[in-house]
Design a protein around this nucleic acid. Structure first.
Ligand SMILES: [Zn+2]
Ligand SMILES: [Zn+2]
Ligand SMILES: [Zn+2]
Ligand SMILES: [Zn+2]
Lengths: 150, 150
DNA sequence: CACGCATTGTTACAGTATAACATAACACAA
DNA sequence: TTGTGTTATGTTATACTGTAACAATGCGTG
């Protein structure tokens, strides 16, 4: 396996250990698949890759459980725009995961994860206040066309 | 039927006529259900309501086709956050439908549709440029907790 | 009317996600 | 260590969401 993947996994392990979360084997295997893919995968694409890599069938329920944990731990994000899951691009650099913004290419599916611009965040909060809403915002998804697809 | 719904439907009809789009009976019936609901519905919730209102079973395919048309015509929006559809809150007031922003309550599902703040839009465009991405952005979805659910 | 095109009908199926209950692994205290 | 409660995993079944493919119908235009 690529050294970079090893580092990401090790960092993820540390993050979980430090927060009392259990990054079990199944969860780590699912995370590994997403990190290696480096582009979003559907739950059933993960299922198929798992079956190939481990030469062992795995049930959807198991995948969804692992994903639920990983999303909760901010190691993986669920993209609603295309209904896929992606390994966090910032697992290595950010101890405290803030609000993310995803530029999602509607043609090739490539994704760039960045921080939500503070100016944008402030404007969103203000607008929400006009409706007396409190922003929860796990993240922001922006549809775009990437440089390779133009 | 409520007078306001009548007006919304009439406006929708005018918009379609003016753009060479055919707002057929089935499409209008689906739009009507969404307008009356005033909160997001899943495709199969629409199916059930249709069956009740018209005392007639309707196939999913038919619903999805109507929704595809209505979304294309900007009379209905698809919310990716909760995988539901909502009648456009601005069908009456806006001839040219710009970028929308939705404040979606993660507790009760209530939705507020507004315009995307120009400042936010400009920042998004600039950030996208850093990745040489071109923003497509049909809309922005922001998870929040509404005033009634706090 | 005849033709082309858009819409709708119909069947079958693919893809996504969760409920419910059983079993196994683990943490921790007696 | 052994019991005990908790968390994780296994297993089966089922609900929910969405589309492919082809047939039939309607509609506007020459
Ligand atoms: Zn992240
Ligand atoms: Zn692309
Ligand atoms: Zn709208
Ligand atoms: Zn609410």
């Amino acid at each position: 396996m690529d050294q970079r993947f090893q580092n990401l996994l090790a960092t993820a392990q540390d993050k979980c250990d430090g927060n009392g979360l259990r990054l079990t084997q199944k969860r780590k295997q699912v995370l590994n698949i997403l990190i290696e893919a480096s582009s979003p995968l559907s739950a059933y694409e993960i299922k198929d890759l798992y079956a190939k890599q481990h030469n062992e069938n795995i049930k959807p329920m198991t995948i969804y459980r692992a994903l639920e944990f990983l999303v909760e731990a901010n190691l993986v994000h669920k993209l609603n725009l295309n209904n896929k899951y992606i390994g966090c691009a910032r697992a290595k650099c950010c101890e405290h995961h803030g609000y993310s913004q995803f530029l999602i290419c509607v043609r090739c599916g490539n994704v760039e994860e960045t921080n939500v611009d503070p100016v944008i965040y402030e404007h969103l909060v203000q607008q929400a206040q006009a409706y007396q809403c409190e922003i929860v915002m796990p993240h922001l998804e922006v549809a775009c066309i990437c440089v390779r697809c133009k």
